[in-house]
């Protein structure tokens, strides 16, 4: 067992545990977007940063990827952490304002406005869908392409993947779009119920636009069967 301190409280966790797991074990809330139990830690969204060590060498690390170390002092809500987290949320809100999850997180952190140029992107490149597809569905149908601002997720060459089994796992885990694409359940749609007739992913042929990597769209397939 490894003993460490989180916000001053001692905690013992098994070797190999992450700081996020340790903090959640004690009940300290740490927001995350790219973390999901059952998928490997990735550390992309930077929301889960916590402060470790002591001044002047204190630093911020992503708690979902940082392993618990003996005697480590962790602060999950210091002013430095909160400042960073608020800026991350502001950046998220500036890029993907439609996501319910992001809106809720921003609201919970008291962010009432964002000061950047408003963009309307869908994907935050958290990589949950890629890991879901690879680690749980064993399909590896989608992956990351390119780097920097051109980075995107999709099937190779943007054509229908032969590996894809239309399981929908990618959409299920997506923190940015899962509430927009609702299959054929009219009681849950956010986008006005059009999912039953012409799902938005069919109108646009580009998969990365709507973050649905399936071809044909599951919604239509289910309808056909019905």
């Amino acid at each position: 067992m490894i003993n460490l301190f989180i916000n001053g409280l001692p905690v013992s966790v098994e070797e190999g545990s992450t700081l996020l797991e340790a903090a959640r074990f004690l009940g300290f809330p740490i927001p995350t977007l790219c973390h999901k139990d059952g998928l490997s830690p990735y550390g992309a969204c930077r929301l889960c940063v916590v402060e470790i060590g002591e001044e002047p060498k204190a630093k911020l690390v992503s708690s979902c990827t940082y392993p618990a170390e003996e005697g480590l002092k962790v602060r999950t809500a210091s002013s430095r952490v909160v400042r960073a987290r608020r800026m991350v949320l502001e950046l998220l809100l500036a890029s993907c304002p439609q996501s319910k999850i992001i809106q809720d997180l921003a609201s919970a952190h008291g962010i009432r406005q964002q000061r950047f140029k408003q963009e309307h992107e869908d994907c935050i490149l958290c990589g949950l869908c890629v890991r879901m597809c690879q680690e749980q569905m064993m399909a590896k149908a989608i992956g990351f392409r390119s780097r920097g601002e051109k980075r995107s997720i999709g099937t190779p060459f943007d054509i229908k993947s032969e590996e894809c089994r239309l399981c929908g796992g990618c959409m299920y885990v997506c923190p940015a779009c899962q509430l927009r694409c609702t299959y054929t359940e009219p009681e849950r749609p956010i986008c006005g119920g059009c999912a039953n007739l012409t799902p938005p992913c069919l109108e646009k042929r580009q998969f990365d636009d709507m973050m649905c990597f399936m071809d044909p769209c599951v919604a239509c397939e289910i309808q056909k069967e019905g």
């Binding site: 550390g43 992309a44 890029s95 490149l125 958290c126 990589g127 780097r147 920097g148 601002e149 980075r151």
Partner: peptide, 15 residues
């Protein structure tokens, strides 16, 4: 901004 790998949200969007 072109050379950031794009994995970290703050590096990609921040730059």
């Amino acid at each position: 901004k072109d050379e950031s790998c794009g994995k970290c949200f703050t590096c990609r969007k921040g730059t």
